[in-house]
């Protein structure tokens, strides 16, 4: 008989939602624009366009089919498959990145680690929680470093906000450095041995807010960009739920 999962209750629902949105967002982006796995297979590994496209499209439809299954605790194979593809996406993003290559794998950590946490059994309760902490910390640390380095895309997102144009580039860059510092602090805080629920709450809110920023900036057509990033808020939300004082095992 299959052992019960490491994460259960509302936290599991939040985690399954994180994994599901990562699957849906990734699949839709791949179908609409072509993804990094296609680019890597076609341009770097010299596959034919036909097969690189077929592989990625096949994976996209598989991800869409897997997404609802992730809410079912027994569908661990589905979670494992989703995690494997999302990891491949992060790996190819890193291989193709024009700058900050080493930051790409951690920057997408919630996407490929959330489904992996769904796979772990109850006996791995502690590792599963640490996996979630590491995932959230990695995403915030990677984005924090990019922000401190003045990532032009982030500056453009700030300037593209409704009041952003009044901000001006210098202030947008200064604000970005501040945001980067806060992100790094949050990343360190979530890894402290004693769970700090406030930190998880902040990360959940900030993760959801920055994901929403993509549609605010890019219009409704950018919804897959928002959806794929919702995992950055949902994983800390799962931690916040796990660390509820009403939970018997809220100690890690």
């Amino acid at each position: 008989m299959m052992p019960p999962p490491a994460i259960h209750g509302p936290a599991r629902t939040a985690l399954a939602a994180a994994a599901a949105v990562a699957c849906v967002g990734t699949a839709v982006r791949q179908l609409l624009y072509g993804g990094p796995v296609f680019s890597w297979l076609y341009f770097e590994a010299d596959w034919t366009e036909f097969w690189a496209l077929r592989i990625e499209r096949g994976a996209s439809f598989a991800l869409l089919a897997l997404a609802p299954l992730l809410f079912w605790p027994r569908a661990r194979a589905a979670a494992a498959l989703a995690s494997a593809w999302l990891f491949a996406v992060a790996l190819c993003t890193s291989a193709l990145a024009a700058r900050h290559e080493v930051l790409q794998l951690p920057a997408q950590a919630t996407r490929w680690l959330a489904p992996l946490a769904l796979v772990l059994p109850l006996t791995a309760r502690l590792p599963a929680r640490w996996l979630l902490r590491v995932a959230a910390a990695a995403v915030f640390a990677a984005h924090g470093v990019e922000a401190l380095l003045g990532e032009p895309l982030f500056v453009d997102y700030l300037l593209g906000l409704p009041a952003g144009s009044t901000l001006g580039q210098k202030w947008a860059e200064a604000l970005l450095r501040l945001i980067g510092g806060v992100d790094l602090l949050a990343a360190a805080c979530i890894l402290l041995p004693k769970p700090i629920r406030l930190c998880a709450a902040w990360m959940a809110l900030w993760g959801l807010a920055t994901a929403t920023l993509r549609v605010v900036f890019g219009g409704w057509g950018a919804w897959p960009e928002t959806v794929v990033r919702l995992a950055n808020g949902l994983v800390p939300l799962a931690l916040w739920l796990l660390w509820s004082p009403r939970q018997k095992d809220a100690s890690c």
């Binding site: 032009p152 500056v155 453009d156 593209g160 580039q169 947008a172």
Partner: peptide, 10 residues
Amino acid sequence: TEISAGGEQA
């Protein structure tokens, strides 16, 4: 397109 597009460049 590799630096900030808004702000000073815009």
